[in-house]
Amino acid sequence: MKPLKRIRSRTAVLPHANIDTDRIIPARFLTTTERVGLGRHAFEDWRYLADGSDNPAFELNRPEARGCGILVAGHNFGCGSSREHAPWALLDYGIQAVLSSEIADIFRSNALKNGLLAVVVSESEHRYLLDHPGIELCIDVSTGCIELPDGGRFGFEMDAFARHCLLEGVDQMGYLLQHDDAIQRHEQRVERAA
């Protein structure tokens, strides 16, 4: 994973609460055996009309939402399935960060492991962001701060380890492999007890 220190981009807003992972990437696209190429199917069933053309009513299809790297989404974003295809699809589509007042556990874990910044903000800050689509934000991972265009700031909480992994681009599998001795000791202890 590449280090991720800050993201500066405009926001696109999807205000719906409980956007589930089937919405983000429908199950029929999960037969892939690769991580790449899912961006064209992100939000497929909202995004395209029956004839395959863009659905003009879908928020992310509006001209002002094009090229926005920060997605502000309704409460409880990413609920449902554990498919990592959801963050893969969003990243491939061009989303670098998701902000919401709640983000489902497995989605958040998957997102952060792929360098997709998943950030929970307070309800009032969430309201503000939902009401102001298209503003440019700077999300600073090291300080845990979101800078607004008017100079205002929102702070956000992030697990210290998750932050460290993003900033340094830590390879978590490599980190786990370094604990091999402790893992072996655990296995021996359990086998002795059995």
């Binding site: 991580r35 998957n110 492991k113 978590q172 599998m173 786990l176």
Partner: peptide, 16 residues
């Protein structure tokens, strides 16, 4: 768990 973690368990039998 997600697929990255599936890989972690395959390699180390552990998760963070």
């Amino acid at each position: 768990i997600g697929t990255t973690e599936v890989g972690h368990v395959m390699a180390t039998q552990c998760l963070l």
